[in-house]
Design a binder for these strands. Structure first.
Lengths: 342, 342
DNA sequence: TGCCCTATATTGAACGTTCATATCCCCCGT
DNA sequence: ACGGGGGATATGAACGTTCAATATAGGGCA
C-alpha cells in the first residue's frame, strides 16, 4: 500500500549541457544572460532547452541566488459564514500583477496557537518568501510594526502609521464620500445620515470622516448611526429604527454596500421608496447589488490598480531596495445610479 | 538610489551546531528525527534553536529532500466584475486544512499567451510544488488529462472522467436537489420549474439532473428554463417571462442563489409573493441572501469538509503514493427557510 | 575477556543552481 | 612577429540542507 514513490528527478542543467556539448554555465547564461552567447550557440541551446523541457529547479536557484520569487499574502481571518465577496477579485488582480513580474502569491496564515508575528517570523527565518503583501490593515497593525523592525520588505493595502515605512496603497474614501455627499447636496438634501459599522475598521472611519466633512462643507444636518457588527438582522433593525424615528433623514450614506442591502430591506418593510422618498448611496460596488431595484449608487474600488500598485511597490523594495517615501491614495470611482433619486 | 540590498543571510544550521558544540547533523536530527538524540542533548539543542530563532532554509531543504511542502492552486479565471463570492471562504478553508499538515497554498495562473497545461508543466518542471489542487472542473478538463498523463499528484473539486485518477471530491448536488423537490412535492406542488444557467458548468447540469429526477420520482410536471449567462438583467427578464407565461409554475428551483436573486427581483416586479404565491429554493447559501425577505431555502456547500477532504487526498498521493480508488461525494446541507412556503 | 549489538554522534557527499574566476581563441595594432 | 584585448566558453566553489556511511562508546552475553 504505502509505496513511497521516489519522486523521479527531472531534467537538470547538466543534462542540457551534455546534450548540447557545452558547459553548465553556458546553459545558465542562455537563460539569464543571453547576450553573452554567440548567436548560433544561443539558438542551438535554446532549441535544446525547449526540446528537453528544461526549467531551472526553483529551489536550487533560490538557494544560490537568495531570491524566491514568491510573495506571501496572509489571508485575512475571514468569517467563513460571511466571507468578503470581493476577496476573489482582489486575489485575482494580485496574482495577475505579481505573475506579470514573474512572482507568485503564497497564501499563509498563523497555525493554531501561533501569533501573526510568529507566523511572519517563521516565513522570514525559513527564507520562504521575498516579501509580504498585507491587507485589512488595522490601526497600529502589529504585523506592520513587526515587519518594520525586522526591516523585511512589505506593501500594505491600507494606511500604516507615520513612523513606519510608507509603502502602502489605499482608496481615497474620504474624498469619494465627500463627493457623494456633494451629489446629495446638489439634489437638495439637507438632512442626511451615515450608517456605519462600529467594528474596528479604519476604512469605515474614513468613510465616516468623509461624510462628516461633506456635511460640514455643505452646511447640512448630518447624523451618524452605527450598527454593532455585520449581522444582517441587526442592520435591518437599526435602519428601520432610523427610518421611523422622529428625525428621519431624506438621504442615507451607507458605509458599505453590505449595509445598504439592509437599507433596501428596511425601506421595503417600512414602505419607504428608495430613490423617491429616500436617497441612498454606499461604497464597494458589490456585484450582488446589480439585482437591487432601483440600482444602487456606490463607489467602486479600483482593485486592479490597487493590486498593481501594491505589487509594484513591493517589488521595488525587494529588487531595488527602494522604499517609497509616501503612500499612494487612489481615487474611488463614483457609480451614480437611480438610488440617488432624480 | 538603486542600492541593491545584499539580503543578509540568516541563521544557518552551522551556526546552531557551533553554538551547541555539536555537528550539523545533530541539529538536523533534533528537528527531523528527535528520537535519535539523547534526551539531554535534544533539550539543549532545542533550546538553542529557539533562542537563535533557527528555521531550516526552505530552499535548501527542498533541494536536498525533493519535497516542497507547497500545493499549487490554479486560481479560476474569475470575471473580475462578478467574482465568485464564495472564493474567499473556500480558500480560507483550503489554507487552513493545508496548514494543518504543514503545507502552504501557492496561487498560480497561466501567463498571458500561455495555456493552462503549459502553466502546469512549468511548475512541474521547475519543481516548484508537490501537487495541485484543482477546482471548477469541467467535463474532459484538459488540466486533469494533462496531470494524469504526467503522473503528477493532484486532487480535484469536481468529478473527473472515469479513465483518470479518481482523486476528486464533490457535492452530491443531485441528491440534494432531489430532496428539495421532495419538500416541494410534500407541500403539494405539482407544477415546478428549474431555472438554470446554460454556461458549461457540470455542477449546473447536476442540479438540473437532480431536479428532473425528483420531478420524475414524484410524478410532477417539470419544466426547464435556461438563462444564457450570469447577467442579472437577463436573469430577471427570463424569470419575469416565466412568471407571466401561460403555464406559470407554483414553485421554482433555481440552480444557484445567484439565479434566485433574480427570482426575488422578478417576483417583486410582477407582484408575486414568494413563499405564498410562489415557492422558491436554490443552491449555494450565499451570505447576501440573509437580506432577502422571506429568507431563501437553499443548500449549503460543506466548504470546510470539502477542503479537508481535498487536502487529505492530495497529501495521501504526495506523501504515501496512494491514489484514492473512488471519488468522494459529500452531502449538501439543506437549509429550509420561509421561501419554501408553509 | 572478548565480541557483537545498539544508541548516539560525526563526516563526506550530494541536491542543482549561479557567482567569480579562469581559460581559450581570434583579431588588431605597432 | 608579438603582446594586448575582448568575446566566448569552461571550471571550481558555494548556497544550506539531508542522506549514507562511518566512528565511538557502552551494555549484554557467552
Amino acid at each position: 500500500m504505502t509505496t513511497r514513490r521516489p519522486r523521479e528527478r527531472g531534467v537538470t542543467i547538466e543534462d542540457v549541457a551534455r546534450a548540447a556539448g557545452v558547459s553548465r554555465q553556458t546553459i545558465s547564461n542562455a537563460l539569464n544572460a543571453p547576450h553573452r552567447l554567440k548567436a548560433e550557440t544561443l539558438e542551438r541551446v535554446t532549441a535544446l532547452i525547449e526540446e528537453l523541457g528544461y526549467r531551472p529547479d526553483q529551489s536550487a536557484r533560490a538557494l544560490k541566488s537568495g531570491t524566491r520569487r514568491i510573495i506571501a499574502y496572509p489571508t485575512p481571518v475571514d468569517d467563513p459564514a460571511n466571507p468578503n465577496p470581493l476577496m476573489g477579485g482582489f486575489l485575482e488582480a494580485v496574482v495577475s500583477a505579481a505573475g506579470e513580474a514573474g512572482y507568485r502569491i503564497l497564501l499563509v496564515r498563523p497555525r493554531p496557537g501561533q501569533s501573526q508575528e510568529q507566523s511572519l517570523d517563521e516565513l522570514i527565518a525559513a527564507r520562504t518568501v521575498d516579501g509580504f503583501l498585507l491587507s485589512d490593515i488595522l490601526r497600529d497593525d502589529p504585523r506592520v510594526a513587526h515587519l518594520a523592525t525586522e526591516g523585511f520588505p512589505f506593501a500594505a493595502f491600507g494606511r500604516t502609521e507615520p513612523e513606519h515605512p510608507q509603502s502602502w496603497v489605499d482608496v481615497d474614501s474620504v474624498q469619494a464620500v465627500i463627493e457623494l455627499v456633494g451629489l446629495l447636496a446638489a439634489r437638495g438634501h439637507r438632512k442626511v445620515a451615515f450608517l456605519g459599522s462600529s467594528a474596528e475598521q479604519p476604512w469605515m472611519d474614513d468613510r465616516r470622516d468623509g461624510f462628516l466633512a461633506g456635511v460640514r462643507r455643505h452646511g447640512m444636518a448630518g447624523q451618524e448611526f452605527s450598527v454593532p457588527g455585520d449581522d444582517p438582522g441587526e442592520i435591518v433593525a437599526a435602519t428601520r429604527e432610523l427610518l421611523t424615528g422622529r428625525s428621519r433623514p431624506t438621504a442615507i450614506v451607507a458605509g458599505g454596500d453590505w449595509l445598504a442591502l439592509g437599507v433596501y430591506a428596511a425601506a421595503r418593510a417600512e414602505g419607504v421608496e428608495i430613490g423617491a422618498d429616500l436617497a441612498l448611496a454606499a461604497f464597494d460596488d458589490l456585484p450582488v447589488t446589480a439585482f437591487l431595484q432601483p440600482a444602487l449608487t456606490t463607489v467602486r474600488l479600483p482593485l486592479r490598480r490597487i493590486a498593481e500598485a501594491l505589487v509594484s511597490r513591493l517589488l521595488q523594495i525587494v529588487e531595488d531596495g527602494v522604499t517609497p517615501q509616501a503612500g499612494l491614495l487612489l481615487p474611488g470611482e463614483l457609480v451614480v445610479r437611480p438610488s440617488l433619486g432624480p
